[in-house]
Design a protein around this nucleic acid. Structure first.
Lengths: 234, 234
DNA sequence: ACAAAAGTGTTAGATCTACACCCATGT
DNA sequence: ACATGGGTGTAGATCTAACACTTTTGT
């Protein structure tokens, strides 16, 4: 192996393709979901997979991920973070392909259904994920683990909710991320003490007769908090 | 852009090289250090850089990283973790190269000095890092951030120390990772309460006349703890 | 004898956890 | 009127953070 700081010119005879795959999490006010796509071509036609593409020569990897997300869901400017790169030699049965994997969080109500048709997309419960092609199953479990970790230190949960949401909804979301029940009083106390929610005087009555007040996430206040060095934790 | 689940064959006309770069952290019982290499060839000859290489067609990315580490330091089986993949179009001035970056933690006393000669390697204090080529500076600051985060939840600090170390040494290490002073009594109390250190009856007198007892990290006990679901935190 | 680092406990304050009842409203 | 989920307070336990003196030993 020639280490780069000693290599004269970039003469590597590589024959490796670079792909990007996106893990798309959603939340429908009851359960955490994963958006999967049915593969329409060989190899592994008919199996479920993440959505992905090969990046173009003149496109950054980040931009590639954004574009995949946009083309498959119609959404732009959404939470999107690089997870990990998968590079085993035989991970793709059709050739040497490495995959840079991103994960994104969207609120299911924002999702445009056209993609369902075009790409054979389907939301799956996290505890009901079908067999996936290649190493996509591993990617998904890594992403879930990462989601749980990140949820403790960043307000990523808010990306999975619509602009206005109730505290019980938020609690259910965190319960499905952490997979354990939370105490309603303690949860409410803690989340409100962070002072990053703005209460509206509207109620959502879809969940109960009494109705629950709708809140909005206050990003300015949140950014202040972070700038002051506080670390968010539920 | 053709999404993969819709693409017949892998006909992407890519012209992208895949490199691996390694960030090597070390600790010399006083300060946290970074191992950098002087670039011996154009472009950017003479500037400092991380050590890296292009991966081979028949080599996984993980194995590529291990090999780079072995060739540049002589060390095997050391802590090595993938950090992130950098994929901006113009990040390397000599062509389209994406870089999968790993970081590793070694104890400086294990490092074989032959590499210093062969590759023009040098240890730098973290607060005295020189200008680096391309986006390597960004990589390093991302890695430092990641190191700080991981140090809170994994016992990675122990990889930076020799097999036997004193509690004051461990404290200095954590202080240099977190960049703040820790209370000696509280630190000792907490670290001992985890019950993952094995005390020896030997003393290291290099740091003081009285001498400090040497301890070893007990990986079995640590793994038990993790298995029980406890999460390590300093 | 003294300088220099190692080692040791306690206490006040903050945070976390567990827990039970009333409220508002659609049916 | 009643069933359903929304909303509220407290007390005990646990954890965190601040703080000062004694011990050991090479010089």
């Amino acid at each position: 192996m020639k280490l780069i700081n000693n290599t004269n010119i970039y003469t590597a005879q590589q024959n490796i393709l670079v792909a990007v795959d996106c893990i798309i999490f959603g939340f429908d006010s009851k359960k955490l979901k994963l958006l999967l796509f049915k593969r329409k071509v060989e190899p592994s036609k008919g199996l479920w997979s993440l959505i992905g593409a090969f990046i173009k020569n003149d496109q950054s990897i980040d931009d590639g991920a954004k574009q995949i997300l946009f083309e498959s869901t119609g959404l732009q400017d959404i939470y999107l973070e690089q997870l990990k790169t998968y590079g085993d030699v035989y991970r793709d049965i059709a050739g040497r392909v490495i995959s840079v994997v991103y994960y994104s969080l969207i609120s299911v109500d924002k999702f445009e259904l056209e993609s369902v048709e075009k790409y054979d997309a389907h939301w799956f419960d996290l505890d009901d994920v079908p067999e996936l092609i290649f190493d996509h199953g591993q990617m998904v479990s890594d992403a879930i683990k990462q989601l749980r970790t990140n949820a403790k230190h960043q307000p990523i949960g808010f990306n999975l909710l619509p602009a206005y949401f109730t505290i019980p909804e938020l609690q259910i979301l965190y319960e499905s991320i952490y997979q354990r029940e939370l105490d309603a009083r303690n949860f409410r106390k803690k989340i409100l003490s962070l002072d990053i929610l703005t209460k509206t005087n509207k109620k959502d009555k879809s969940g109960s007769k009494k109705g629950a007040f709708l809140y909005a996430f206050n990003k300015e206040k949140f950014d202040e908090l972070i700038a002051e060095g506080l670390n968010f934790e539920i």
